[in-house]
Design a protein around this nucleic acid. Sequence first.
DNA 1: ATGTGACTTGAAGTCCGTC
DNA 2: AGACGGACTTCAAGTCACA
Lengths: 77, 77
Amino acid sequence: MTISIMANTDILLRFGERVRELRKKRGWTQEAFADYCGLDRTYVGGIERGERNVALRNIEVIAATLEISISQLTKSL
Amino acid sequence: MTISIMANTDILLRFGERVRELRKKRGWTQEAFADYCGLDRTYVGGIERGERNVALRNIEVIAATLEISISQLTKSL
DNA sequence: ATGTGACTTGAAGTCCGTC
DNA sequence: AGACGGACTTCAAGTCACA
């Protein structure tokens, strides 16, 4: 029995899916979102695909851009 | 007026203080905690001093070792 | 509008030690 | 028990051209 649909998959994939979900909910493209974050478009793409082991400072930037706390951003992980 | 005592200070410092607080609450030394995490003792020391921009995989390891979720670990940040 | 490979540079992370 | 330094290796950060 699973707690969440994202349980038991890699943390980077789960984080990426979460970011993508929240970004899309706001109707933003990857490119626009990357601009808001002050990050490169391809870097954000890599995060959403679970290829980047994002560090705390960028996690903070992403949460701030989504206007939620880091705790909320990592809620379902 | 401040929301939290740790607001407006660097995210790395806040994270480090949070880790230190939770580690001490469990009565663990830095070295023992580092061993449990499978990380280097000097690295964990650096994290607690706010000198390390910890990435997601290690945040997950730290949370798991403390037996809490990442969301709980980053609750007060 | 996004995925991907290749790349450089700076920081993550380890291992030795001293105070 | 923990801060801190030097030297080292691995990896995250950040960018680009092209599909």
